[in-house]
Structure formats: structure tokens, C-alpha cells
Amino acid sequence: MTGAASITQEERDKKIREYLVYMENVTVRFGKVVALRDVNFSVKKNEVVGLLGDNGAGKSTLIKALNGYHQVDGGEIYFNGERTNFQSPRDARDVGIETAYQDLALVNLMSISRNFFLGRELVMGNRFFKFLDKRKMDEVAAHSLAEVGLRNIREMHETVNFLSGGERQAIAIGRASYFGAKLLILDEPTAALSVAETEWVLRLVSEAKEKGLSVIIITHNAYEAYEVSDRFVVLQHGKNYADLKREETNAKELIEVIAGRK
């Protein structure tokens, strides 16, 4: 679809200035595999983008390139008007990008609250000695997880190993939404969830939008995507395939597009 070459310099500058995320000609290779080839992707401020595509289309790779998990082999990424050079997801988290990963959400042998605060631990103490504020971490984690509907979990000390797939996913999503300041990235958040839990996630996305955040939601379910997204970006074999506004399409059509029949 629209490549970077097809827009004028002024249009490009304007987009970089105004958009929250602007990715241009992004290429990511894994050895010989080209996972993304010259992909363009953007997210406006306060926009919910549904990122769609078949298995292996490159969706996860795209968001990992955005948040510094992968380093790009080509292309430019802008966040909030500035060229990013995230060396690690830590840099992305520092500027307000939170990700709930499809495959890398939790450390099984660690407790719920330690997982919740991983990389963002609460500490107390003086300048020289800082210790984990375990009580506070337990409290905040319990509170936020109760808010996202995980009321059955009493013990924040329990390892996440014992939790169900849905509960684990809820922790990852709850964490992202707790820390997410500007952009929330959800990679297949509903894959392991029940109907009620799925509704909860979709509500969470809408709430984030109401709060002024932008959201990228990756899913295989076109109906879900259609319910919450303002726009849909479809990838195929690591390339841009379609970019549709909500008004221009419907869930049925999206399914056709994702399958490459349209």
C-alpha cells in the first residue's frame, strides 16, 4: 500500500511531529529469514490500532522492533516526534511504552508481585542502600490485579506457575496497563482467555483510549479487533498488505483481507 516514497517531505515531517509512533521502511532479519521488509506503521495519539495478519506475518516482530527488543536492520522509528534508538525495552518503558507479550510475559518461578514489578521494582531506603519495598509491591500488585478482575488471587507470594493461562495473561496485561503511560501494546492478549475475560480486555483497551493512551492490539480475531480499533494494519509475509480505517470496513471483510483473499 502507501509507501514512504509516495508522501512529500512536508507530509512526512508533519506525521513525525503529530503521530505518537511513526515507523518507516522497517526491516528486521533473523539470519536468512526476513521477518519484516520495508514495513511502514504508525499510531496516532489516542488511537487504537489493530495489528492483524496470519501466523508468522511479522506482527510480534514489528512491535518488538518498536520497543527495542529487536534492533532493526533498516528503517527509522519515531516516537512522540523523536527518532528513537531504544537499545532495550527498558528505554521504551522509560518513555511510556508498555508491552504485554505473547510469549515472554512472566517468569514462572517468581512470585506474582515480583513478576508484576519486574524491571520496575519499588525500593525504599537511603542513597546508599536501597531495598525492595515488598509490602508496597504486594499491596499495589494485589490492588491492581483486583481491579482487573483477578480477585481470586490472595497470595502475592505464590509463584505464577500455579496460575491458569488466563490468570497469567491477565497479570501481564494488568502490569502493562498499570505502567503504560502513553502507549499500550498487547500481543494477542485474548489468546488464552474466556469470553468474560476477553470482554474485560476489550474494556481495558477502551478505558485506555478514554484516558488518552494509544493502543496497539494484536489479535487473530477480526471481530475483537473490530470492536475496539480505530484502524487496522494488516501484514502479510513481513510486508504491509492493507491499512484500513474502521469506517471503511467491517469484520467480515477484515477476515478476507487477513486471509489474503481481498
Binding site: N108, L118, G119
Partner: peptide, 22 residues
């Protein structure tokens, strides 16, 4: 009881997750 210790557990428990969380 420290941040670093928490990171040590995470790195050994699941390096991918540790990296993904920064």
C-alpha cells in the same frame, strides 16, 4: 531484598522475559 537480586532470579528463570521487561 534488592532490585538486583530480583533481576538475578529473572535472568536465570527466563532470560527472554527479563530482556523483554528491560
Amino acid at each position: 531484598n534488592t532490585k538486583y537480586g530480583n533481576h538475578v532470579f529473572a535472568v536465570g528463570g527466563n532470560p527472554g522475559t527479563a530482556k523483554a521487561l528491560g
